[in-house]
Every structure is written in structure tokens, then in C-alpha cells.
Computed example of a mutant assay.
Amino acid sequence: MKKIFFFLALITTSIGFAQNDEAFVNSLVAQKMAELEMQENPEYFLRKDYCDGNIQMFVMPDGKNCSSKSTYYAVYVFWKEGEDIMKIQKFDNCGSFMSFSISISKNIKKALKEKQALKTENVKPYKGEKVDNSAFENMSVQSCHKEYKFIFDGKVFEKSFKEFDLTNNSKYKNVNSDHNKSLMLIKLDEEISEMIKNFDESGKFFREK
């Protein structure tokens, strides 16, 4: 009798709990991209954020629980609505969020005009001034990544980098730090990161039901 009760409890728990992987997130984003293509939107891009092994759990609007499976992925899709307005929509392992309009800042507008720089410039990997096995002994290094996909006038290109490549916190200076931070991609990324941080703190992201 106890075994039957445990089995029924397990089924009930499973029904109210969801786990989704990167493929699930990619499918949501692909649907959004297809929608933008149908609208013949000439300019849009996305950023995918994730840290290897980082798992997050959420209580959904319907009261059910949802968590990432293995790694949590957050994707932000941006598309232009006008000269000074763009929209943003967030997607993650637990579904999609409501889109909303934002003003295009001068820094973002400037970066998006530098399409050739965004396409050709590349982030260089972390490289210390000296080789020393103890250079990172006091550091807690988490493998966090950012991936970009740009679609400008039907042309697609992608960029990716590790957040660690931008840091300068080890025992020896990262010789590629100044180069990386001078890139148009990183200037755009810093602006977007600050914007997303403010949206998170102000509760701007609402899940779709």
C-alpha cells in the first residue's frame, strides 16, 4: 500500500514540475525569428546567456514549478520598430516573456551602425602576461558564455565569447583585456547588460501565461 501511495505522489509531483533543455529554448527562439522574417523586419538580433551547470528553478504564473535541465539559458531578442524604438522579448528554459518597447540609446544606435565592425572584430581569449600555474589559485572561475546572432538586411552572422576573456582579475594582467573592451561588440554588450540588469531589478520581465 505504501509503495502505491509513493508512486501516486511521484506522478502528482511530476505533473506539476517541468524541466526543459537548450533545445526547448532554441525552438521558442526559432519561432520568434520566423515571425520576424514573415514581418520582413530588416534588422534584429539576439543574445544568449548561460553559465555551464547553472540550474535555476521558478514558480510559474499557474503555480507549477519549472527548472532548467542541466544548464539555464536566457535569450533576449531585439528588433527595431522605428528609428528610435526597438522591442525586446526574453525566452528561457521555462518559456517566453511578454515583449515590450524600449528607446534605442545613443550607444546602441551607434554600435548597430557599425555592422562591419560587429561582423569582423573578434574577442581574443584570456592571456596572462606570464605563465604561472598559481595565477588563478585564488579565483573562482565560472564558465559563462554569451552568444550573439545578428540579422541585418537578410544577412546573418554570429559572435560568441566567454565572460572570463574580458576580465583582468588574475595574478597577472590579461594582455587581451584592452583589445577586447575596445571592440564594438563588447561596447554593445556592456550597454545591453546594464539595460537587462535594470529590467530585472525593476521587474520589467513578465512571463506569458
Results as ranks from 00 to 15, higher is better:
residue 161 F to L: 06
residue 190 E to W: 09
residue 141 V to M: 05
residue 198 N to H: 06
residue 134 S to F: 06
residue 129 E to T: 10
residue 127 K to W: 01
residue 178 D to E: 14
residue 109 K to T: 15
residue 144 C to H: 07
residue 183 L to W: 07
residue 161 F to D: 01
residue 131 V to R: 08
residue 147 E to I: 10
residue 187 K to W: 05
residue 188 L to T: 04
residue 183 L to F: 08
residue 154 G to N: 03
residue 188 L to K: 07
residue 200 D to E: 12
residue 194 E to K: 15
residue 131 V to M: 03
residue 182 S to L: 05
residue 143 S to P: 01
residue 155 K to L: 13
residue 121 E to N: 09
residue 102 I to Q: 11
residue 156 V to M: 11
residue 163 E to L: 10
residue 195 M to I: 07
residue 138 N to T: 07
residue 158 E to H: 04
residue 110 K to S: 15
residue 164 F to Q: 07
residue 167 T to A: 09
residue 118 L to Q: 06
residue 171 K to I: 13
residue 138 N to C: 02
residue 181 K to D: 01
residue 135 A to C: 04
residue 117 A to W: 10
residue 178 D to Y: 04
residue 190 E to L: 14
residue 179 H to R: 02
residue 157 F to S: 12
residue 132 D to T: 05
residue 183 L to E: 07
residue 185 L to G: 01
residue 192 I to T: 12
residue 197 K to E: 15
residue 187 K to S: 06
residue 106 K to C: 00
residue 172 Y to W: 15
residue 190 E to Q: 13
residue 186 I to Y: 00
residue 151 I to V: 14
residue 172 Y to L: 15
residue 172 Y to G: 06
residue 197 K to T: 15
residue 159 K to C: 02
residue 145 H to C: 04
residue 155 K to W: 05
residue 108 I to N: 12
residue 137 E to L: 12
residue 117 A to C: 10
residue 129 E to W: 00
residue 161 F to S: 02
residue 189 D to C: 01
residue 102 I to W: 00
residue 177 S to D: 06
residue 181 K to H: 07
residue 106 K to Q: 12
residue 170 S to T: 14
residue 130 K to A: 08
residue 154 G to I: 05
residue 105 S to C: 07
residue 172 Y to F: 15
residue 150 F to S: 03
residue 135 A to S: 09
residue 189 D to Q: 00
residue 108 I to D: 12
residue 128 G to C: 05
residue 165 D to N: 11
residue 157 F to L: 14
residue 122 N to C: 09
residue 144 C to V: 06
residue 175 V to Y: 03
residue 183 L to D: 07
residue 114 E to S: 15
residue 171 K to R: 15
residue 151 I to W: 09
residue 105 S to N: 04
residue 159 K to D: 05
residue 112 L to G: 14
residue 186 I to A: 02
residue 152 F to C: 09
residue 144 C to W: 05
residue 136 F to C: 06
residue 197 K to M: 13
residue 107 N to M: 14
residue 190 E to N: 14
residue 182 S to N: 08
residue 110 K to T: 14
residue 191 E to C: 01
residue 120 T to A: 10
residue 130 K to M: 07
residue 148 Y to F: 12
residue 178 D to M: 14
residue 186 I to L: 04
residue 146 K to Y: 06
residue 184 M to D: 05
residue 129 E to M: 09
residue 139 M to C: 03
residue 110 K to I: 02
residue 140 S to D: 08
residue 154 G to P: 02
residue 150 F to P: 10
residue 156 V to T: 13
residue 174 N to I: 07
residue 127 K to C: 02
residue 174 N to W: 10
residue 131 V to A: 09
residue 163 E to D: 13
residue 184 M to F: 01
residue 164 F to V: 14
residue 118 L to H: 08
residue 143 S to I: 00
residue 109 K to L: 13
residue 161 F to C: 01
residue 146 K to C: 03
residue 158 E to K: 11
residue 137 E to R: 08
residue 126 Y to S: 03
residue 136 F to K: 12
residue 149 K to I: 12
residue 132 D to F: 03
residue 147 E to S: 11
residue 198 N to S: 13
residue 119 K to G: 10
residue 145 H to P: 01
residue 121 E to V: 02
residue 103 S to I: 11
residue 132 D to L: 08
residue 133 N to P: 11
residue 184 M to H: 01
residue 196 I to R: 02
residue 122 N to G: 08
residue 175 V to R: 00
residue 123 V to A: 05
residue 190 E to V: 14
residue 160 S to W: 00
residue 185 L to N: 04
residue 169 N to V: 00
residue 181 K to F: 00
residue 159 K to E: 08
residue 140 S to V: 11
residue 117 A to V: 13
residue 152 F to S: 10
residue 163 E to R: 01
